[in-house]
């Protein structure tokens, strides 16, 4: 099995006459965390939406382990192994934490025809839910209503739900947004662990966090790919410095 899990080949997305993404190419590799950087409006969300199937690309192809998945919709992409979290917390606020995770785990083996089975009796699903809650550190909150969790805990829950789908590729849209520094560092630690067996695409504003955990960084500006490279390469890339980062960011 190739370690190149997800390959985006010259993805373009136009809205009317405007190009939100222009020929953006990325490769996500197992064991590596790839960060997507760019100022607001650079097209990061459009890019992640095309990868997750929320938005069809106008041009370009997407491959998962060598298979062309451009035509698959969001549920189908989730089922092949691409999981995503959202910038704005996207959970089931009225359900318990356990049920949020359980429902996510159930998606791997849906058993829709077993109309009279008890969903809470499906051992494999329940075990998976408990495992992912433990992994992100939410097992103590299992029976709380998700909507009553703190913002940081809701972000953790969101990650737990993606993990419950056994995704090989994680597309994480600003998982640190709105977190306190302690919660954020715990999340960074979690990302560090998760990367070992998966490929991660991280869209993030927190520069320190990005340079601390990323193996590779891609910088988008105005919908175009400006540079791709290791953190050190990006740090010293002249174009990137001029176009986006500014001197201060490096000395801060």
């Amino acid at each position: 099995m190739s370690d190149q899990l997800l390959v985006a080949d010259k993805l373009t997305r136009r809205f009317g006459g405007l190009s939100a993404n222009e020929a953006v190419s990325l490769t996500l590799t197992r064991g590596r965390l790839h960060a997507l950087l760019g100022p607001n409006g650079a097209g990061k969300s459009t890019c992640i939406n095309m990868l997750s199937g929320d938005l069809p690309p106008s041009e370009g192809r997407i491959y998962y382990q060598g298979r062309d998945i451009t035509a698959l919709d969001a549920p189908q992409r989730s089922r092949v192994g691409i999981g995503r979290s959202y910038q704005r917390t996207n959970i089931f606020p009225g359900f318990t934490v356990l049920e949020n995770c359980r429902l996510a785990a159930q998606s791997r083996h849906q058993r829709a025809w077993r109309l009279f089975a008890n969903a809470l009796g499906l051992r494999d699903t329940l075990d998976k839910a408990h495992a992912v809650m433990a992994e992100v550190g939410l097992e103590a909150q299992a029976n709380r209503i998700a909507g009553t969790l703190s913002h940081g805990e809701q972000r953790q829950l969101e990650i737990a739900m993606v993990l419950a789908t056994d995704a090989d590729v994680l597309l994480l849209d600003e998982p640190l947004a709105g977190m306190g520094s302690e919660e954020a560092s715990r999340m960074v630690g979690l990302l560090d662990t998760l990367r070992r067996s998966r490929a991660i695409l991280l869209v993030e504003h927190d520069m320190d966090a990005v340079f601390a955990v990323a193996d590779e960084i891609t910088v988008l500006v105005n919908g175009q790919l400006l540079a791709t490279g290791t953190p050190a390469q990006i740090r010293s890339n002249h174009e990137v410095q001029q176009a986006y980062l500014g001197e201060e960011a490096f000395h801060a």
């Binding site: 189908q76 989730s78 959202y86 089931f92 359900f95 429902l103 996510a104 849906q110 789908t165």
Partner: peptide
Amino acid sequence: GIKSNEHRMRSLGYS
């Protein structure tokens, strides 16, 4: 789940 958040159900893999 669909009633609560259909978009999320789709991204979790439910058609």
